[in-house]
Design a protein around this nucleic acid. Structure first.
Lengths: 229, 229
DNA sequence: CGTTAACTGTGTCTGTCGGACACAGTAAAG
DNA sequence: CTTTACTGTGTCCGACAGACACAGTTAACG
């Protein structure tokens, strides 16, 4: 798995030249996932697009899980550079870039859940995040935990706002809030606090993202200030 | 879907008495998911455990997605009560309870991703969370966004630490960090900040959970203090 | 320059999955 | 006692991941 992700495969000397490349296969899979959703990515479907038979793919990829891992790392790509920013500005830009990446490929929210091998691009993202906190007074574990909180929040908001192609996410944002409001109007007495909170008009777009990032960064700033005092 | 979740189904008058109940089916599915993982929950598998034929289940549930929704809401259960706490203590307890719930049923981390209909128990959790912030000076949207940040962080940490039965999560925590460290040792020059951060010894268990919760709650306290000033 | 060995792409097959559909048995309403 | 609605069941289908054997192709080696 890690060998595939990091490109640690020596090219074979004998035998016919491979007609495809691993990245080519992954790019085809990404194209399908972008337009039709992650559920539409099957070995058969990817093979049809290349076009090649399904079993030919297994010469390049041990299984579907590995293909998803490769296409995920390829899709997130390298993190953008933002030189000359303070740690707070850099972390904010990092989080917004990550949010944009999740919006560009919403299926990443589904394919990158749980413990899994880290690919080179994901490692680069982690490196960029940690780099913003070097010299802040936080130790390495705290630096990693900080960007974990940030990325977790970005994921949370992206999952709520993203629209998945292919109907994996059956409800649109409006349908969701509408059905939620309807249920809660009928059961408002059972959930008084929640019903009251839902009565206040929601703010602008992506308010939840900015709100959480501001709170997290405020909390980090408090800790960093205490460390440097 | 919502009708099922909220028990809005009038019992039929004519015909034979149903031999099963929706909750009985969901409990069987929960038992399977707890011991063998979410992937082991198939219509056939649930039917075999009851025991009944697969198609009999479709008399109670329109499809598998609905079954998963029902079993998820049933598994998370009602939130524990913690009377007489400050808003910060109450939110902390709420987050820890949620973390415990995710640890009791790790498959909830997989079955409750993305926009989906809210069940009665999940609504109760939201209500308890929001209740802690009533009277804090935050408006309804901010209250909801606050518990969203907290629950998102709990999810993030639970996903990293939880061990899924059935091998859905192929890597143990040790195997993951070991492979990660191995890769990064070989490519330390490409990711210097990340490599440096990983060199510091990791702290005690669940440090990431406490770290993030402290930062988020600190940030919230800052905002609440500003509002009340 | 042949021979051989390794590698490629392919076709066939199996087991599992969710789900559609028709059918027979059963129990309550009229 | 008939009708009607509901139950559980058996059969069937298409899609899926993947195992396996096989034929064609190309580079290394004698």
């Amino acid at each position: 798995m890690t060998e595939l992700l990091w490109g640690r495969q020596q090219p074979p000397s004998r035998g016919p030249k491979p007609a495809m490349t691993l990245t080519g296969i992954a790019e085809a899979a990404i194209r399908i996932a972008d337009t039709e959703g992650l559920d539409a990515v099957s070995m058969q479907r990817v093979a049809d697009d290349l076009p090649v038979t399904k079993m030919a793919l297994y010469r390049y990829v041990p299984g579907k899980a590995e293909l998803v891992a490769v296409m995920s790392d390829l899709a997130i790509g390298e993190p953008p550079e933002h030189p000359g920013l303070s740690w707070r500005e850099a972390l904010l830009a990092w989080a917004m870039d990550l949010f944009e990446g999740f919006n560009r490929h919403p299926w990443l929210l589904l394919s990158t859940v749980g413990r899994r091998p880290v690919g080179p691009n994901e490692a680069a993202w982690l490196d960029r995040g940690v780099r913003a906190l070097t010299g802040s007074g936080l130790n390495g574990t705290e630096q990693l935990d900080s960007i974990l909180v940030l990325s977790g929040h970005v994921r949370t908001i992206a999952l709520q706002t993203a629209t998945m192609p292919g109907g994996r996410q059956g409800l649109t944002e409006e349908a969701f809030t509408a059905s939620f409001a309807g249920i809660l109007a009928a059961e408002a007495d059972r959930f008084p606090s929640l019903a009251a909170a839902l009565r206040t008009p929601s703010g602008q777009e992506n308010q939840g993202l900015a709100f959480g990032l501001d709170r997290i960064l405020d909390g980090l700033e408090l800790l960093i200030s205490a460390r440097n005092a």
